[in-house]
Design a protein around this nucleic acid. Sequence first.
DNA 1: TAATAAATGACTAGCGCTGTCATCATTATA
DNA 2: TATAATGATGACAGCGCTAGTCATTTATTA
Lengths: 341, 341
Amino acid sequence: MKVTINDVARHAGVSIKTVSRVMNNEPSVRKDTVDKVQAAMAALQYQPNAAARNLASSRSFSIGYIYDNPNAYYVIDMQRGLLDACRKHGYELIIHPTNAKSPDIVQEVLDLVQQSRLAGLVLTPPFSEMPHIAAALEQIGVPFVRIISGSTPSPKLSNCVLIDDFTAAFKITNHLLELGHSDIAFLCGDEEHSSSGERLAGYQAALAKRGIAANPKFIVPGSYSFESGVQGAKKLLELSKKPTAIFACNDEIAAGALFSARLMHIAIPQQLAIAGFENSPFSRQTWPPLTTAHQPNVTIAQQAAELLFRHTKPNASKNLSDKQPVFIPELVVRESTAVSS
Amino acid sequence: MKVTINDVARHAGVSIKTVSRVMNNEPSVRKDTVDKVQAAMAALQYQPNAAARNLASSRSFSIGYIYDNPNAYYVIDMQRGLLDACRKHGYELIIHPTNAKSPDIVQEVLDLVQQSRLAGLVLTPPFSEMPHIAAALEQIGVPFVRIISGSTPSPKLSNCVLIDDFTAAFKITNHLLELGHSDIAFLCGDEEHSSSGERLAGYQAALAKRGIAANPKFIVPGSYSFESGVQGAKKLLELSKKPTAIFACNDEIAAGALFSARLMHIAIPQQLAIAGFENSPFSRQTWPPLTTAHQPNVTIAQQAAELLFRHTKPNASKNLSDKQPVFIPELVVRESTAVSS
DNA sequence: TAATAAATGACTAGCGCTGTCATCATTATA
DNA sequence: TATAATGATGACAGCGCTAGTCATTTATTA
């Protein structure tokens, strides 16, 4: 029933210590010994006792994922990717939904780390953009990886996975421009999220490249929510000079804009083109379906976890750790920006 | 930095063992000793080492949640509720997304239980409705709680949290009837999910009570997906005798139906009323927003976990364990079924 | 073939907690 | 008041593994 390291050792004809060496991939174990031991582990279906390993080594085999994101699909995708990586490396994932705006969020994170004895942490927005959290984690020496918006790798961002929102937003705006639009409005997400700023910058850069002066009234502050899209679009569509296209900072905002346009009997895409960002499932389920930018969140999460494991694992090869992943979301064209027929 | 049970014992002036007794609320510790120990724990901010407890007691302090549900919001809510309960009882939650249709799903679940040494498991549909999983878990003696569709508590369902889909569906159908509809169609979810059957039964019962013969063409098989709603509604709206109202088995199907109706230039709710089920966030974000039934998923999950802990905890009072929670989703009326003006 | 380095094993001491059993303190019973 | 019966507490071993120290065996190189 219960297979211990002893059984494996006996089965493989080696000592307990050698099995332990293999498990912790310590150097100076011969290749064929490793094979022998691994064969024995497989044959006996050995499951190392995580509790014992934990206790003896006083390191832990779980990483944490803190989230506070209204977009459930994003969270689920992240979890999926993180779990994939965790399974591969024999780690466990501790999830922790919380309120990022809580005044003692830093303490909460530290408590989590202590209580669950986390080996490391993966941070997504908004946590990945809170400098005091990064600072606190650094101080207590807990490795962490941030998934953030950015396009240019740099040493300062060595523990980051970058999402190039700028370029993706540039591409979306360009798509609208190519469709013949020049009065393109932008519905911002939360100011605190740097993704919103990056996307705005991409939008502005695309306009600038065509020599189009950005109309300040066409840039509407807001937040990453349906409601914000409703309000923002309303404001835009009540202008005397309406935009002919709206680029929303994410799909939810875009859905809100769609809702507003419909209320005002504005036909999409004939009278108004709308584009979103994220490619969340409901971007396919609006009417008409939304043009958007696709982020491979599962893959991003996997990479983030892999990056983290390079820091948590003592004997892992760290030589490739300079590779800093950058993901560029891809343009997905759907009916919400179809050429008016 | 690291506070151990030793420190607490010394601080409280008792033996290590007594502290341990307090932690596990074993009987036969005097009241004032308990207080003394708890005061010491609080003063030192003692965090018991889960790994050590695990190892020494060979029981575990984590429960599992397996999911395979396309509805991310549902999963997130479940997690939230489960985590709330876990935190309260000092447990950890191990999440495990997987494919319910995998041929060796039972083995996978058993492996998970073994590998993560789970103290128990919470099952939601579709897993909660797979008898071979329940059987396998019973056989290896791992406690589990199922969240399933049903209205009448019974001893056989002692470890279940029931969702009364029947009554909720009855209420929705009744709402449509009261609006003056009599040609009400029903878009089914997956046959394997008993919720679909229960909701269908509730729909039929409501019709029957009014003496309305159900038109078999108005009952369309399908699955819990947007696409299924699109197809199902299309079929219905191409009938020579169209329904005037559609009750979809969940919001996603309803959104699909909405999409289809729009394609066919059918005005909602003027020409067709549509109702969903679940009250997922996007039921509020369609145009028009969907009438639906609200399930308090966070609370449901909490209760499920509490129920589970009564089985996993050795010294817990089990006397209240006969109480079997039943939740009736509530009717939420929105514009998709507004009286045609 | 000797000299050097690389693998491996035997042994030991915990990691922080729980379980068992022995001990001591208290109360009930005659 | 003595005696048993119970309640409350402590001493100690050990959960399954890691990690360190040396001793021993095996492979590699000059």
